[in-house]
Design a protein around this nucleic acid. Structure first.
Lengths: 195, 195
DNA sequence: TGTCAAGTACGGCACGTGCCGTACCGATAG
DNA sequence: CTATCGGTACGGCACGTGCCGTACTTGACA
């Protein structure tokens, strides 16, 4: 028969994640219910609960399945140019639909669900931090960055203003904003002509 | 009669807010319900719904009633020293119980409830930003800060790394961390001995 | 290589629970 | 007399968990 209603294995997982993103974009994360996802996906609630422990876990998986980590750093030799390019890409992904609003809600959920916070950190934040620190380390070795500088701190200083705008003032993340941040910061973090 | 069960006016408001903070600290914001607050406060649910439109609005009011804005800036003439002192105080308030965890949850709620986001911004974020910008402006006029510097951007650069640690990596906010941020930043933002 | 029984993942349904937000009540105070 | 209160009851929704019948998969046996 065509269109068999009962399948198994990984295809169900994929359908459910796709439906989660669809519904999430339509009605927003707050109103999104597992019940509704199951209904639209033509899936039993069990099938969802079997794989994901919470709405947050489901959304995190769904979002990660969407972009598959294209936020890698170029390495042209110029640290500021490379940071600029990577952060522009990150901002394009995170700052706009479909990823943006759902990612924002996920970070929100992470503020009162420690399991979501842990999963988000492990599967998205930490890998991004690692990439950034690795790229910064290289720049440091090449003398483009003050040698004693704590690179985890640098990560916080670079990302912080973006998250501040994204989560707190909730204004749009533009390339122009990114550029202003970078311009402001790299006067101070680079090697200075000081006695 | 002593301990009259039915009162009116503003005293109910106060009891409800106090109870909200109590219960919130005990069981966390996620599990906090208006029903439970009403029960413990000895209040009718209607009395709560009459004054607050959501759980977030209730918590925001409760938190603001607690500290009453003691995050003012000193003005010793040294901008870095003043910022350090103010941010230390802010971190002491925001980074620890009782304010800390509840404030964190409130920011989380603001990520999918625009009304909470607006209220939070209007009643806490914006006033703090205004104070910071005012203090920075003074420093700029006295030549302690690069003269062209966008002060709203400076606010984001100062606060961003703190919120990043608070919300994203969720590590504790210490004075030592604040100091490292300030030390790193004020090499770059101050006036430089450059040709 | 073909057959069939056991096992597994599934969709659908119903259940009990908890909290939502609203409506109504009787009591109390101004 | 009227506004406000505490208390209770209500319908509604989504939660998370059982149970059932079904389709697909596996593998032992011939």
């Amino acid at each position: 028969m065509t269109d068999t209603p009962h399948r198994r294995g990984a295809d169900r997982t994929e359908v459910i994640m796709r439906t989660t993103l669809e519904l999430g974009q339509e009605i927003g994360y707050a109103k999104l219910s597992i019940e509704a996802v199951a209904a639209r996906a033509g899936a039993g609630k069990h099938t969802i609960y079997r794989r994901w422990s919470s709405k947050g876990a489901l959304l995190l998986d769904s979002l990660l399945s969407l972009h598959e980590s294209d936020l890698d750093y170029p390495d042209t030799g110029d640290i500021v140019a490379d940071l600029r390019e990577q952060i522009h890409a990150a901002v394009d992904l995170i700052g706009r639909p479909p990823f943006g609003p759902l990612y924002q809600a996920l970070v929100g959920e992470a503020q009162y669900d420690p399991r979501v916070a842990a999963a988000l950190n492990e599967r998205f934040i930490a890998p991004q931090t690692d990439k950034t620190v690795a790229r910064l380390k290289k720049a440091q070795d090449q003398g483009q960055l003050a040698s004693g500088f704590d690179l985890d701190l640098a990560m916080a200083i670079l990302s912080g203003p973006l998250y501040f705008r994204f989560l707190i003032t909730q204004e749009p993340l533009t390339h122009e904003y990114v550029d202003r941040i970078l311009d402001a910061l790299f006067v101070g973090m680079g090697p200075h002509p000081q006695p």
